[in-house]
Amino acid sequence: MSDIVSRVGVTFPLVCPHCEKPTLALVTSEAHGGGEEEPPYLLEMAECGHCHDPFVMVEEDFGRGWDGEPAVVWPMQQRPLSLQVPQALRHEHEEARQCFSSKAYTAAAVMVRRTLEGVCLDQGVASSGGRPKPLFKMLEQMKDEGKIDGQLFEWSQELRVLGNQGAHFTGTSVSREDAADGLALAEALLDYLYVFSAQFTAFKARRAKAKEDVRGASAD
């Protein structure tokens, strides 16, 4: 397990999950765990410097050490993404959530677009002839390769357009409703690609093995 330096008495800047105001959270107690079945983790009880309500934060070490950026896990405002989603993509999506919690809805849309681009790169859709592809083309390739279906492609394109709206000054900001929908659709895309697809593949393999065992037993 990674070396852990006590953070009791240390403060962290974040948006309070109770009063939703920027604050310095004071770590009041901590506990750590993890082992062979899961990465080392650090649980921290903290207190909002503004409303003084308590909450729980967690930080995990995936082999790169502790980065000092714990995530609030209670009170749960949004479910955590599965650990099957690559860490870099979870980090991008978490930043989008943090922007939304801070009421920075345009910034949240931009982070959703970054998440979408990260998905394409992680899936091996990166360039054409050594030159980076536009996100639109990367999404088209994802669809052509069967990694996303028609509806997911449509969702992804809408997220791309929303992110473009946030990234360019047009005099129109992104609404709270659009940012919330963007976060939800991005989360659904991540779940589909990294959780449900893997679960379905494992299900099919297990069913195929069971059928093979039945045929083998019948042959005996």
Score class of each variant (00 low, 15 high):
residue 158 E to T: 14
residue 133 K to N: 10
residue 73 V to D: 01
residue 141 Q to R: 09
residue 115 T to M: 06
residue 151 Q to A: 13
residue 117 E to N: 10
residue 89 L to E: 02
residue 174 V to H: 04
residue 87 Q to M: 10
residue 104 A to C: 11
residue 141 Q to H: 06
residue 155 W to N: 10
residue 150 G to M: 03
residue 121 L to R: 14
residue 132 P to N: 09
residue 145 E to Y: 10
residue 82 S to D: 09
residue 125 V to T: 05
residue 63 G to D: 00
residue 170 T to K: 13
residue 122 D to L: 12
residue 100 F to R: 11
residue 171 G to Y: 04
residue 136 F to G: 13
residue 166 G to A: 07
residue 130 G to E: 11
residue 58 V to E: 10
residue 86 P to H: 07
residue 118 G to Q: 07
residue 110 V to R: 02
residue 154 E to C: 03
residue 146 G to N: 02
residue 62 F to K: 06
residue 88 A to C: 05
residue 93 H to W: 14
residue 173 S to V: 12
residue 155 W to R: 11
residue 112 V to L: 02
residue 147 K to S: 05
residue 84 Q to F: 01
residue 159 L to N: 04
residue 101 S to W: 12
residue 150 G to W: 00
residue 142 M to W: 00
residue 98 Q to E: 13
residue 57 M to R: 14
residue 113 R to E: 00
residue 53 D to S: 15
residue 65 G to H: 04
residue 137 K to I: 15
residue 61 D to K: 09
residue 57 M to C: 06
residue 151 Q to S: 14
residue 75 P to A: 01
residue 128 S to P: 02
residue 68 G to Y: 01
residue 164 N to I: 09
residue 140 E to W: 00
residue 135 L to D: 02
residue 71 A to T: 13
residue 76 M to T: 13
residue 113 R to M: 01
residue 103 K to G: 01
residue 161 V to R: 10
residue 75 P to Q: 02
residue 122 D to E: 14
residue 142 M to T: 00
residue 51 C to E: 04
residue 116 L to P: 12
residue 141 Q to W: 08
residue 85 V to Q: 00
residue 75 P to L: 03
residue 88 A to D: 01
residue 164 N to V: 08
residue 169 F to I: 13
residue 128 S to M: 14
residue 168 H to I: 13
residue 105 Y to E: 06
residue 135 L to A: 03
residue 155 W to F: 15
